[in-house]
Lab assay of single mutants.
Amino acid sequence: MATKAVCVLKGDGPVQGIINFEQKESNGPVKVWGSIKGLTEGLHGFHVHEFGDNTAGCTSAGPHFNPLSRKHGGPKDEERHVGDLGNVTADKDGVADVSIEDSVISLSGDHCIIGRTLVVHEKADDLGKGGNEESTKTGNAGSRLACGVIGIAQ
């Protein structure tokens, strides 16, 4: 089992970053940390998408990683996509320092995120509470600013 993974985020604009993942036990939580720069100040949706395909930019990554066919939600919700990591918060300089621990994603097994795409979005994720159909699919997080395929790390 891989215990570490990394993702280099890039987009068409100024947004870029490096996100690290570490899972010490196969059924334990995954620590997610790193930094994203070039964002507007505020909240930005942060999700693992189904495919590791960036051939047409971030759009070819498909929908959120959702092997259990659930509705979109927040990272602490029972009803959520596996890939729903909530929001990252950018400061006035456009930098989001990421520090998350998640017990639904994994670096092995059915919820493995390796080979899938991590995406940072234009807007805040409403965590499935926006009151419309799009909220239950995407959290109304808007366009995909930057993305990268999650790969095994040393």
Rank of each mutant, 00 (worst) to 15 (best):
G142T: 03
N87D: 07
S26A: 09
C147G: 09
G13C: 12
D91E: 14
G38I: 02
D93R: 09
V48F: 09
D93T: 10
A141F: 14
L145D: 10
L145N: 10
N140S: 07
V30K: 01
S99E: 15
G139S: 07
D110I: 12
T136A: 09
N20L: 03
I114G: 00
A2E: 15
E79D: 14
C58Y: 08
K76C: 12
D53E: 10
V149A: 06
V88H: 01
T117S: 14
P67T: 06
N87F: 14
K37M: 15
G57W: 09
G13I: 03
G130K: 15
D53S: 06
G94D: 05
V104D: 08
R144K: 13
R70P: 04
A2H: 12
A153L: 14
L107D: 00
D84R: 14
G73A: 12
S103L: 06
A90T: 06
A5C: 04
A2F: 08
P14I: 11
A61P: 14
N54Q: 10
D91T: 07
G42M: 01
T55L: 15
Q23L: 00
L85H: 02
S103M: 13
I18G: 05
G151Y: 11
A124H: 12
E41C: 11
P67K: 13
N87T: 12
R144Y: 06
H49F: 15
F65T: 08
F21G: 05
G109V: 04
V8C: 14
K129N: 10
L85I: 03
D77E: 10
Q23C: 02
N87I: 07
N132E: 10
G38H: 05
K71I: 08
C58F: 14
E22A: 09
T117A: 09
G34W: 03
H111Q: 14
V95N: 15
K71E: 09
T55I: 09
S103R: 12
K123W: 06
G38V: 03
V95P: 01
A124E: 08
V8N: 07
A96W: 01
D125W: 07
G142P: 00
I100D: 04
V98Q: 01
I150H: 00
D125A: 13
E101W: 06
F65R: 06
V32H: 03
G57A: 08
V8Q: 11
E122V: 05
I150S: 03
K92Y: 08
K129C: 12
K92N: 11
S35D: 09
D91V: 03
N27G: 07
K71V: 06
V32E: 04
S69D: 10
S69Y: 07
E41N: 04
E122S: 12
K123R: 14
G13K: 11
L39W: 03
S99N: 14
G57N: 15
N66A: 05
V120R: 03
V88C: 07
P14E: 12
S143P: 12
K92C: 09
A141K: 07
A90M: 02
D77P: 08
T59F: 08
S99H: 08
N140C: 13
T136M: 10
E41M: 15
K92W: 07
K10Y: 09
K10A: 12
L145F: 13
L9M: 12
A5W: 00
W33H: 04
G115K: 00
V82G: 03
T89F: 05
G94A: 04
I18R: 07
G86E: 00
L39K: 02
I152E: 02
K31S: 12
V15E: 15
A2Y: 03
A96V: 13
S35N: 12
G13P: 14
G115P: 00
E133K: 05
R70E: 04
L127S: 10
C58W: 08
E101C: 08
I150W: 02
V30L: 07
G38Y: 01
W33M: 10
L85F: 05
S26C: 08
D93V: 08
V48W: 00
G131Y: 07
V119P: 02
A61D: 09
I36Q: 00
G42N: 02
G83D: 06
S108V: 10
G109I: 00
E78R: 13
L68G: 09
K137M: 12
I19P: 02
A96T: 06
D12C: 10
L9G: 03
G17L: 02
S69C: 09
E25Y: 06
K10I: 09
H72K: 05
S35Y: 05
Q23H: 09
G148M: 00
I105A: 03
G28R: 04
E122N: 09
L43R: 14
G42V: 09
G130P: 14
A2P: 15
T89H: 14
A146I: 08
G57C: 14
G86V: 05
V119S: 11
A90E: 03
P67L: 00
L107I: 10
T89A: 13
C147V: 10
N132R: 10
H44D: 04
A124N: 11
G86I: 00
D84C: 07
A90S: 12
G74V: 15
A96P: 03
E101T: 04
G130E: 14
R70K: 12
K10T: 14
W33V: 15
N132H: 10
F51L: 10
D77C: 07
Q16K: 14
A141N: 06
I36C: 03
A5H: 00
N132Q: 13
K92P: 12
Q16L: 11
L43I: 02
S99P: 09
V104Q: 05
N140V: 05
E101A: 07
A124L: 12
D102P: 01
G94N: 03
E101H: 03
V32Y: 03
A146N: 01
G109A: 05
E134R: 00
V15K: 01
I36R: 00
G94Q: 04
I36W: 00
A96L: 00
I150G: 00
W33C: 14
K92R: 07
A2Q: 03
S69L: 11
D125F: 10
G86Q: 00
G57H: 11
D125P: 06
V149Q: 06
W33R: 09
S108M: 06
L9D: 05
D126F: 09
K76L: 13
D84F: 06
K4F: 11
K4E: 09
N140I: 09
A153Q: 06
G28C: 06
V15A: 14
E133D: 13
L107N: 04
Q16A: 11
L107E: 02
H111E: 10
S69T: 09
K31N: 13
L118G: 02
N140W: 05
G74L: 06
D125L: 08
G74R: 07
I152W: 11
F51S: 15
G38F: 00
E25V: 05
N66H: 03
L127N: 10
